[in-house]
Structure formats: structure tokens, C-alpha cells
Design a protein around this nucleic acid. Structure first.
Lengths: 195, 195
DNA sequence: CAATTCCATTGACCTATATCAATTAAGATA
DNA sequence: TATCTTAATTGATATAGGTCAATGGAATTG
């Protein structure tokens, strides 16, 4: 059960076997079905989640009623509303389960205790969140620099395993374009590939 | 000299006086003039910087030759190319000094030593980078959700002290719009304020 | 298998913003 | 102050992508 999270951790830092055991002993196993919500707006968020199996999407619905996908999460990703989790403010996000999923959760208080007792895990999260910042910077640059076609190709490359698991309108949404526009871009790409 | 960085640290974590002293003893003071570059593309980045006084901008020039401002930094901000710094890859960014500035720098190896010896500073950076991730998520959402006028107003609010210190074309660039368009938006806003 | 629902595609049209060119305003320098 | 340079503004035009409406497929459900 804990194999994938242990691998993920040891890919980034080197805790002792005992530390690793202590860490995983705080985790709770969760199974949740497609269509369910892990987080909904207004909720106080006490957990974040590691995906063992399945897929989810995190999105925000703005005051105009438009939906904006912030993140997809599949195997070996952490997902949650980090703003709500760390700053103890009500969530503004929906986190929806796209496929029946198995997750591990860790609650805020346990994580604080882990940070206090075993700084190696503070390092683990520092590294993860640093990587996440770098990835988000790339997303910002990408939206400034590239047109829809380029961004779509980049997405397919970066999330090869996700591309066929989520509907196109969700991909369009993630890219910040209309489904119609993405459809046209895909059509153009098909032409190019065939000829 | 170290007052502002010490205040910044103790706003987020609570090191002992000794730890704080040890931390600051690794810092180097730097003065650098307007127009100079802290980082340029291709460089190996060994330092990151805390702004005591002055202002800088970090930007990327894409293969098409277009410039994209990633970040402004003024007093009490950390600035650097974190991708290059942490992943030891050549920088792709320009970090340019906008006003004569006083900075503190910390080099990578010293910071690793600090992390090893005093986990409280690992926590400090974990918190900072978490906040940075949350801020970047807001920037991504903002670009998806809001039009130029709304984003400009948001910018002026969020960076009240920056707005009058950088040229409009840099603000336009940061927002991902043309200077002409920002000019028109500003014109509209003036009308609304007067009437 | 038929019915239904959801999703992708296509077409027609519209809008925000980019681009290009010219002008004015503001700063910097001699 | 006059000159030069840089930035901001304005106008005219072009375009990527949005929106709305209709159609065609695919997948799910009874």
C-alpha cells in the first residue's frame, strides 16, 4: 500500500527506515469513486492527498460562473487546496474525482508534528513545493509565450498519461481556451500529421 | 544591515538568537546599480538575493524574441532564478536592476549547510515557497478569469509600491498585454474616476 | 437494441486585443 | 534652455479566439 509514497519520498530525500515508517503510520487510506468531491468551496481543509491510483481535477468557479481547472492529479501526485490547508481559510476549490481512486491522506496537525520531529520531511515538502513553483512559472510563461496549438502539444507531452483520460473540454479549460477552439486546433494537427 | 532580513525571518518562523546570528553570518552584502544584471541567460546560478533597498525585475526572452516579466522584486522580497539555483541548470532569465539597490546574497552551498544544521530555516524557505506557489496560482487564475482592466487594478492593489516605480510597458508586459492596450485601459479608468 | 445523454465538431459571427504607424509627452543630456 | 531620447498615447486595421447555434458521434442507461 505504501510502496508508491515511499518511492516518491526516497526519490527526493533519504529518511531512515524508522522515519519512513513513522511517516507512513500517519497516513490514512481512502478509496473514493468517480464523481465524488474531495474538497468543495467553503470547506475547511484539514487534509492533503497522495494519489496511489486514479485521477482527479482541482478547479475554481469564478464569480462569473466560469470554471478554471488548476491542476490534474494522477498516480504519484499530491493534490489538495494548499492555500486553504496551510492558511486555514475556507477552500474556494472543487476537487473532483475523475476515476475511481485510491488515495493516502495526511492531516494538518499530523504533518506539523512530523515537521517538528523529523525535519527530513520538511525538506521533502520544501523540495516538492519548490518544484511546483518552478512548474507553475513554466505554465505562466507558456500562456504568455505560446498560442493554443503550441500549448496543447506541450500539454500532451507533459501529461502524456493524462491526455487520454480526461475529456477534451477539461483540457481546453486547463489551457484557458474554449473547447471549440481546441477542437479546431486538433483538426489542424490531424491534417499536418496525415499529409 | 540585517534588520530587515531578520524581521522577515521572524515573521515566519522563530529561530533562536544564535541561529539567527549564524544564518546572517552567511549573507553577503551587495550594492548594485540601475541597469546592471544580477543574472543573465546561460549563467550558472549560485546565489539568491534578498532585497534590502531598491527594485529589480526578472524576465525571460523567448525564442521569438518576446520578453516576459516573471517577477518584480522590491524591499523584503527574495529574488533569483530558483530553477537554475536548485536544479543546477544554466539560467534562462535576465534579472535586471531597476533602481540602485542593496541586496543580501546567499550561496547554494551555504544554504545547504544551513538546512542541515538548522532545520528551522528549511521551514522558513518551505513557508516562503509555499506562499509563492499560492501567489502564482492566483496569477494563473487571474489571467484565466479576468480581463485587462481587472488585472491592472489587481496589480495596482497588490503591488501598490511598485506601480509608480516601473514603466507602464513593464507592467503591461507582466500582465501579458501590449503597452497600447494598457494605455487604453488606463484612459478608461481615468474617465471613470473623474465622472 | 433503442433511447438518451453527453461530448466533439463545424459554421457564422463578434469582440478583445495585437500590430503597425504616427503623434505627443516626459525625461535626460548637452 | 534647447536637443535628444525614451515612453505614453492615439488612430486604423488585422486576427486569434470567444460565443452562439446546429449537427453528428460516442458512450451510457434502461
Amino acid at each position: 500500500m505504501y510502496k508508491s509514497i515511499e518511492e516518491h519520498i526516497t526519490k527526493h530525500v533519504s529518511p531512515t527506515a524508522k522515519e519512513l515508517y513513522q511517516f507512513t503510520s500517519f497516513l490514512k487510506e481512502i478509496t473514493i469513486d468517480k464523481g465524488q468531491f474531495l474538497v468543495e468551496p467553503g470547506q475547511i481543509v484539514k487534509h492533503k492527498y497522495f494519489v496511489i491510483k486514479g485521477g482527479l481535477k482541482a478547479y475554481y468557479i469564478d464569480p462569473k460562473g466560469n470554471k478554471h481547472i488548476i491542476q490534474f492529479a494522477v498516480e504519484n501526485w499530491w493534490v489538495g487546496d494548499f492555500d486553504a490547508y496551510y492558511n486555514n481559510v475556507p477552500s474556494k476549490l472543487h476537487i473532483e474525482v475523475l476515476e475511481d481512486s485510491e488515495l493516502l491522506s495526511i492531516d494538518y496537525d499530523s504533518l506539523q508534528k512530523i515537521y517538528d520531529d523529523m525535519p527530513i520531511f520538511e525538506r521533502y515538502y520544501r523540495i516538492l513545493v519548490t518544484n511546483s513553483t518552478i512548474a507553475q512559472r513554466k505554465r505562466i510563461l507558456s500562456s504568455l509565450e505560446k498560442n493554443t496549438q503550441e500549448r496543447y502539444l506541450e500539454f500532451c507531452e507533459a501529461y502524456a498519461n493524462i491526455e487520454n483520460r480526461v475529456p477534451n473540454y477539461d483540457i481546453a479549460n486547463y489551457l484557458g481556451v474554449s473547447p471549440e477552439n481546441l477542437s479546431r486546433v486538433r483538426k489542424q494537427l490531424k491534417k499536418l500529421n496525415i499529409s
